[in-house]
Amino acid sequence: MGIENESRITMARLSELPSGTREVIDSACERTGARHVFLTLARHPQLAVRYVRFGLELLGDGVMDDRQRELVILRVAWLCRSDYEWGHHVRLGKRCGLRARDISRIPQGPGHPGWSAEDAAMLTAVDELVHRRCVSPDTWHLLARGWDEKKLIEFLVLVGHYVTLAGLLNSIDIAREPGVEGFQAPAGKATEEPNEAGSWPTPFR
Rank of each mutant, 00 (worst) to 15 (best):
residue 2 G to V: 13
residue 2 G to Y: 08
residue 2 G to T: 12
residue 3 I to T: 15
residue 4 E to S: 15
residue 4 E to F: 06
residue 4 E to P: 03
residue 10 T to L: 12
residue 12 A to F: 05
residue 14 L to A: 10
residue 14 L to K: 14
residue 15 S to C: 15
residue 19 S to K: 10
residue 21 T to V: 12
residue 23 E to F: 08
residue 23 E to K: 07
residue 26 D to G: 11
residue 28 A to L: 09
residue 28 A to S: 14
residue 30 E to L: 11
residue 31 R to K: 13
residue 31 R to G: 01
residue 32 T to R: 07
residue 32 T to A: 13
residue 32 T to P: 10
residue 35 R to V: 03
residue 36 H to G: 08
residue 37 V to S: 07
residue 37 V to G: 11
residue 38 F to K: 07
residue 39 L to E: 08
residue 41 L to E: 15
residue 41 L to Y: 06
residue 42 A to M: 03
residue 42 A to V: 02
residue 43 R to P: 04
residue 49 V to C: 14
residue 50 R to C: 11
residue 50 R to V: 13
residue 51 Y to S: 13
residue 55 G to R: 04
residue 57 E to W: 02
residue 58 L to E: 07
residue 58 L to Y: 08
residue 59 L to F: 04
residue 59 L to R: 11
residue 63 V to N: 09
residue 65 D to N: 12
residue 65 D to M: 10
residue 66 D to Y: 12
residue 66 D to P: 09
residue 71 L to Y: 05
residue 71 L to S: 04
residue 81 R to V: 08
residue 83 D to Y: 00
residue 83 D to A: 08
residue 83 D to H: 07
residue 84 Y to I: 05
residue 88 H to W: 01
residue 90 V to R: 02
residue 90 V to Y: 00
residue 90 V to Q: 06
residue 92 L to G: 11
residue 93 G to P: 03
residue 94 K to V: 03
residue 96 C to Y: 02
residue 100 A to R: 05
residue 101 R to P: 01
residue 101 R to K: 02
residue 101 R to M: 05
residue 104 S to Y: 11
residue 105 R to V: 06
residue 107 P to V: 05
residue 107 P to H: 06
residue 109 G to P: 04
residue 112 H to G: 01
residue 113 P to S: 01
residue 115 W to A: 11
residue 116 S to Y: 10
residue 117 A to T: 11
residue 119 D to S: 12
residue 119 D to V: 14
residue 119 D to W: 00
residue 120 A to N: 04
residue 121 A to G: 02
residue 123 L to N: 02
residue 124 T to F: 00
residue 124 T to S: 09
residue 125 A to I: 03
residue 127 D to A: 04
residue 127 D to M: 05
residue 129 L to Q: 05
residue 130 V to G: 03
residue 130 V to L: 01
residue 131 H to G: 02
residue 132 R to S: 14
residue 133 R to M: 09
residue 133 R to V: 09
residue 137 P to Y: 04
residue 137 P to W: 02
residue 137 P to K: 05
residue 139 T to Y: 01
residue 140 W to G: 02
residue 140 W to D: 11
residue 140 W to S: 02
residue 141 H to L: 14
residue 142 L to K: 10
residue 143 L to S: 08
residue 145 R to K: 15
residue 146 G to N: 13
residue 146 G to S: 15
residue 146 G to W: 05
residue 150 K to N: 15
residue 150 K to W: 13
residue 152 L to G: 13
residue 153 I to F: 08
residue 156 L to I: 12
residue 156 L to C: 10
residue 160 G to K: 01
residue 160 G to H: 01
residue 162 Y to M: 06
residue 162 Y to G: 07
residue 162 Y to P: 07
residue 163 V to N: 03
residue 164 T to M: 08
residue 165 L to Y: 05
residue 166 A to W: 04
residue 168 L to M: 04
residue 168 L to A: 04
residue 170 N to A: 06
residue 170 N to L: 09
residue 172 I to K: 02
residue 173 D to E: 07
residue 173 D to A: 14
residue 174 I to M: 00
residue 184 Q to P: 03
residue 186 P to A: 14
residue 191 T to Q: 15
residue 192 E to H: 07
residue 193 E to S: 09
residue 193 E to V: 14
residue 194 P to V: 14
residue 196 E to Q: 13
residue 197 A to Y: 09
residue 198 G to V: 15
residue 200 W to G: 01
residue 201 P to I: 09
residue 201 P to W: 05
residue 202 T to F: 06
residue 204 F to V: 12
residue 204 F to Y: 15
